[in-house]
């Protein structure tokens, strides 16, 4: 009995792993990947999906097998075997999940680092004063953020896929009940849609006017809460042209479900045309003449 059982177990495990791998590679559950972040995220997703599928099938298979194989025959009032435990088995199924979990942890740390989550730029302990010494970009952001919101000292960072590269486009984002407003400080554009050039780093300086909102673009695999009193920096690089939804992902009131906008990723020429076309006249007091795109409901 032992040898065939062992071989059978091994064979079944291999099949399970293969099925898991196949499912992870071939079953696509995610929307299109349109930012530099997204393929990295999808890689993690595939690994987790593979491991999860193998585990679920294995455990459910074992359960169903036990229920069928060891079902009680009618009229049998006897008991099963009085086995109260098995130390090697306990060690085995403590060690294996521990290793799997450790692997997942280290791997997702690596993914997180590749997404730029650990970049010093995003360390929210960076104060405005200190930041000027560290990095000119961080300092620049910090100044803008603190000027924009009347002086809170801290920047709260999201994910930055660029690390230390300079952002090509800066946008000030105001989240309020129930809309996102995008202001381009260089050109003075105020828009209800976010327009960004493909392949260039975009830095969002986000602040919330009233309650907590969250900026989410599923195709970018990117989400960041925007909390009142906490100017937040988020940067990303879009990689595929198209129109993607911007969704508020934090309950913010009755019209939370309608708090949506669009990010338009376009080639740099179209983008600069859009900027030129929508830039307000160079008169300083011209807010009313300017707004380019109407707010998307």
């Amino acid at each position: 009995m032992p040898i065939p059982a062992a071989i059978l177990t091994l064979g079944l495990s291999v099949v399970l792993v293969l099925v898991g791998l196949w499912v992870g590679q071939n079953v696509n559950m995610l929307p299109i990947d349109a930012s530099a972040n997204a393929p990295v995220y999808d890689e993690l997703f595939q690994v987790l999906f593979s491991i999860g599928t193998s585990l679920l099938l294995g455990i459910v298979g074992l359960l169903i097998y036990s229920l069928v194989r060891y079902r009680r025959v009618a009229g049998d009032t006897g008991d099963g075997l009085p086995i109260e435990g098995n130390l090697p088995l306990e060690i085995f199924w403590t060690a294996v999940p521990a290793i799997v979990v450790l692997f997942i942890g280290i791997y997702s740390y690596d993914i997180y680092e590749r997404m730029g989550g650990m970049a010093p730029l995003n360390d929210h302990s960076v104060h405005v004063m200190q930041a000027s010494a560290d990095s000119s970009i961080a300092a620049g952001m910090a100044m803008e953020a603190s000027q924009g919101s009347g002086g809170p000292a801290r920047i709260w960072g999201g994910i930055s896929p660029t690390g230390s590269g300079a952002a090509a486009v800066n946008v000030d984002v105001t989240a309020m009940q129930f809309a996102f407003i995008f202001r381009y400080p260089e050109s003075g554009i105020i828009s209800g849609e976010l327009h960004v050039p493909v392949g260039q780093t975009v830095a969002l300086n986000m602040e919330a006017k009233d309650v907590i909102h969250a900026f989410w673009v599923p195709q970018f695999r990117l989400k960041q809460d925007v909390i009142p009193g906490q100017p937040t920096l988020l940067s990303f690089t879009a990689t595929k042209e198209g129109r993607y939804p911007i969704i508020c992902a934090e309950l913010c009131g009755p019209y939370h479900g309608g708090m949506r906008s669009t990010v338009v990723v376009e080639d740099p020429e179209t983008y600069s045309t859009w900027v030129t076309k929508n830039s307000p006249a160079p008169l300083p007091v011209s807010v009313s003449s300017a707004p380019s795109a109407p707010l998307q409901s």
């Binding site: 995220y41 993690l44 997703f45 999860g52 459910v60 997702s108 989550g117 695999r221 989400k223």
Partner: peptide, 26 residues
């Protein structure tokens, strides 16, 4: 057992920061 194992697997996935950033609050 079946349901909880399913929920436990998605729970380990949700524990990973990069994974959670996309699906948090969804």
């Amino acid at each position: 057992i079946v349901n909880f194992v399913f929920g436990g697997i998605t729970g380990v996935a949700l524990a990973q920061v990069p994974f959670d950033i996309h699906v948090h609050d969804t």
